[in-house]
C-alpha cells in the first residue's frame, strides 16, 4: 500500500496556525466571570483617582497610586491571571495535547497564547489606568500612564506565560513574585530594580513629570525596550518547554 508519507512539509501556514491558536485562547480566557472580577479590581484604581482629585497635591498622589497600585499590583495581577492561564490551564487539564499533537511549529502556540493574554488583559489595565488619571484631573499623566500600562502588561506577560507552562501552582508563585520581588525587593537598590518590570513601566510615568519619587530610575529608551524583550524571552522559554517537556 502506498503511504501518504513524504518528506514534504505538512500543516497549515504559521500565520493560520497562530491565528487559530490565538482565537482559541482568546475565547477560553475572556470568560464573563474572569472579566468581571478583574474589571472590579480596575475599578478600585478609578475610585482612588477620586482621592487624588480632592487632594492638595493631586499629581504626586495620582502618580504614587499609578505606580504602587496600577503598575505594581493591578497590571501584574491581571497579566498573571491571563498569561498563566493560557498554556498553564491547558497543561493542567491535559487539553494542551490537542494543540501539541498538530503539525504546527511550537512557537505558533506560544505566540498565540501570549497575544491572547495581552489582548484580554490590555483593555482592562488601560481603561482602569486611563480612567483613574481622568478622574484625578491630572491629564498630563494620561498618555504616559497608558504607555506604562501597555509596557507593564507586555513585560509581565513575558514572565507569567512561561511560568504557567512550567509550574503547576503558577498563580501562587506569580502572586508571590508580584508582592515580594516587584513590590518589595525592587525598592532595595539598583540591582533588584534592574530586574523589575515595575521599575521600567514606572519610569515612563515618572520621566514624564517633575515629581521626585523613589520609583522609576530607568531611562525612557530602556524602559520602552526591555519589557518587549522580556516578552520575547518568555515566548522563547515557553517554546523550549513545549519542545522538551513531556505532555500528558
Amino acid at each position: 500500500m502506498a503511504t501518504p508519507v513524504t518528506t514534504e512539509s505538512y500543516g497549515p501556514t504559521s500565520k493560520a496556525a497562530t491565528m487559530a491558536v490565538f482565537g482559541l485562547f482568546l475565547r477560553e480566557l475572556a470568560t464573563r466571570a474572569r472579566i468581571l472580577v478583574l474589571s472590579s479590581l480596575g475599578l478600585l484604581m478609578v475610585l482612588l483617582g477620586l482621592v487624588a482629585r480632592f487632594s492638595d497635591d493631586g499629581e504626586e498622589i495620582e502618580l504614587t497610586m499609578l505606580i504602587a497600585l496600577g503598575l505594581g499590583i493591578i497590571a501584574p495581577i491581571i497579566s498573571l491571571v491571563m498569561a498563566s492561564a493560557t498554556i498553564g490551564e491547558r497543561r493542567a487539564d491535559q487539553s494542551l495535547v490537542y494543540l501539541w499533537l498538530r503539525p504546527i511549529p511550537f512557537w505558533t502556540i506560544a505566540v498565540g497564547a501570549g497575544a491572547a493574554a495581552i489582548t484580554v488583559a490590555m483593555p482592562i489595565v488601560l481603561v482602569s489606568l486611563g480612567l483613574s488619571v481622568l478622574v484625578s484631573g491630572e491629564y498630563q499623566l494620561f498618555v504616559p500612564a497608558l504607555i506604562a500600562g501597555f509596557l507593564a502588561v507586555v513585560g509581565y506577560t513575558g514572565i507569567f506565560l512561561p511560568l504557567g507552562a512550567l509550574l503547576k501552582r503558577s498563580f501562587l508563585v506569580g502572586l508571590g513574585y508580584i508582592l515580594i520581588w516587584e513590590s518589595l525587593l525592587s525598592q532595595l537598590g539598583n540591582f533588584f530594580e534592574q530586574l523589575s518590570i515595575l521599575s521600567y513601566s514606572a519610569s515612563i510615568v515618572v520621566n514624564a513629570t517633575d515629581v521626585v519619587t523613589s520609583s522609576g530610575g530607568r531611562s525612557t529608551p530602556s524602559s520602552t525596550v526591555i519589557p518587549p524583550l522580556v516578552l520575547l524571552g518568555g515566548i522563547a522559554i515557553t517554546v523550549r518547554f513545549l519542545n522538551r517537556r513531556e505532555i500528558d
Binding site: P4, G11, L101, P103, I104, P105
Partner: peptide
C-alpha cells in the same frame, strides 16, 4: 513535526 500529520490521537482524558 510532520509526524502529527500522520497520526490522529484520541487521548483518554475527557477534558
Amino acid at each position: 513535526r510532520r509526524v502529527p500529520r500522520m497520526i490522529g490521537v484520541a487521548p483518554q482524558q475527557e477534558q
